[in-house]
Design a binder for these strands. Structure first.
Length: 425
RNA sequence: GGAGGGGUGGUUGAGUGGUUGAAAACAGCGGUCUUGAAAACCGCCGCGCCGCCAGGUGCCGAGGGUUCGAAUCCCUCCCCCUCCGCCA
């Protein structure tokens, strides 16, 4: 959520930001009108309440002195009704204002590229070199078939499309990667590990900005009004909702399954495990002082990149343009792994600075130099998503004989195993 | 799921209709004293909203209600604790 004062006082700056996102800015006029209405009603209601408080005090005093207060009490009853009326009008305006404010996305950082969609994104750096193959590289589905590590038909039987089954050495590889990434984040990069709930309430989803906009993309438990997490960002960030953090910065990391309905994406990129409704991910979340958040974003990206570098994978970093960043983000880098079989780039990480946008929604604060509460800045980044990491490893490390050479840093997590071997015919 | 108890400021903890936004203590901040520190003493010390300021207003788990007036009475909900039941 944006600061209403910012919308009020720097309307054109905010408007420009929304225009850069390709948004209609009519919502700002509605918000400003509601804001004026709201403040007028507050002034009116406060004035009436001041009178009520004063007279009530006098009545108390008079009663103690044994005086008759019937007449004045009767007249005050009318004032009470007027106040109730005023408060109802105010509640109505505030609800309208809040609804409108929750629907306004973050203002993009001024330095990011301006553009309507992904075509305007900027490639920041390409790391590693594409491997040259002496044979035609297979895609992850074909490799997985040879290795016997997926079972898509039976997964559909159990649930439906988009809920893959990993088997045998495939399961073990994924578990090893999770373990490796968590170890790197916690042992070397200074993060504290958390195992959070995978199901959260509505307030948490509003806090990080998934609701109200993304309701259709998430799984909801009607009986309890709970939501399956689409990312660990939600429970981990909301850990400090309505809280004052004692000491900044705080770095947290969590492995969780992620659940995404991806409404409207049926039939798109559905081959294999590229785009699924349930996947695993290791996430990093930072709570920092506002002055440092853009430096923290750079180190967050570096933390994610370190994984891929250590795995010796070919990847690139993209700076998203104003039209492509997510609802809550002010600036975002995507990290994409190269898929040699499809000659395409696969997004495995999204690292964002939300500035105080989430902190205002979720009311996450710390004490500034003057001891007064201030909103923190929040950031998060994947470190990293498992399915596409698996795809990239399978494809980039595949051998002509059908085996897959395991990156060296992962081998200790696989009991020294050097390669995944094709299943016996 | 059933029965009982309880949710008050950073913490502990008073407060059952009227100068209570809230006693007291502890913690914290500033000062006096001291070579320095401790102790002692003095003062300050919650958050939000409206307002240029003065000030006003709201907040005692959340939301409603009663009343001239609610931390205090009533209703609904949430959470925590104890016991019972069920259970990985």
């Amino acid at each position: 959520m944006l600061d209403i004062k910012r919308i009020r006082e720097n309307t054109e700056e905010v408007r420009n930001g929304l225009v850069r996102r390709g948004m209609d800015t009519a919502c700002l006029e509605k918000i400003l009108a509601a804001d004026i209405e709201r403040r007028a009603l507050i002034a009116k209601a406060d004035e009436l309440k001041q009178k009520r408080n004063a007279v009530s005090k006098e009545i108390g005093q008079a009663k103690r002195e044994g005086k008759d207060t019937f007449a004045i009490q009767t007249s005050m009853r009318v004032l009470g009704e007027t106040i109730t009326l005023c408060d109802n009008l105010l509640a109505n305006v505030e609800e309208r204002l809040r609804t409108a404010m929750l629907a306004v996305p973050n203002v993009p950082c001024p330095t990011i590229p301006t553009g309507p969609d992904a075509s305007a994104n900027r490639v920041v750096r390409v790391v590693g070199t594409p491997r040259t193959f002496s044979f035609k590289p297979l895609d992850h589905v074909a490799i997985g078939e040879k290795l016997g590590i997926f079972d898509f038909p039976r997964a559909v039987k159990l649930t439906g499309p988009g809920f893959p089954i990993l088997l045998g050495q495939g399961s073990r590889l994924q578990r090893a990667l999770i373990q490796y990434m968590l170890d790197l984040h916690t042992q070397k990069q200074g993060y504290t590990e958390m195992i959070p709930p995978y199901v959260v309430n509505t307030a948490s989803m509003v806090g990080t900005g998934q609701l109200p906009k993304m309701a259709e993309d998430m799984y909801h438990c009607n009986a309890d009004d709970y939501w399956l997490v689409p990312t660990a960002e939600v429970p981990v960030t909301n850990y400090y909702r309505n809280d004052i953090i004692e000491k900044l910065p705080v770095y947290l990391t969590a492995y969780t399954p992620c659940f995404r309905r991806e409404a409207g994406s049926a039939g798109k990129d559905t081959r294999g495990i590229l785009r699924v409704h349930q996947f695993d991910k290791v996430e990093m979340v930072k709570f920092v002082e506002p002055e440092t958040s853009y430096d923290e974003l750079e180190s967050l990206v570096a933390n994610a990149e370190e994984i891929l570098q250590n795995l010796n994978l070919h990847y690139r970093v993209i700076e998203l343009c104003s039209g492509d960043i997510s609802f809550s983000a002010a600036k975002c880098y995507d990290i994409e792994l190269y898929s040699p079989a499809t000659d395409s780039w696969l997004e495995v990480s999204s690292c964002s600075n939300f500035e105080d946008f989430q902190a205002r929604r979720a009311n996450i604060r710390y004490r500034g130099p003057d001891g007064k509460p201030r909103l923190v800045h929040t950031l998060n980044g994947s470190g990293v998503a498992l399915p596409r990491l698996m795809i990239a490893i399978l494809e980039q490390c595949q051998q002509e004989d059908g085996s897959v050479l395991i990156p060296e840093v992962i081998r200790p997590y696989l009991g020294g195993t050097e390669r995944l071997l094709p299943k016996a015919k």
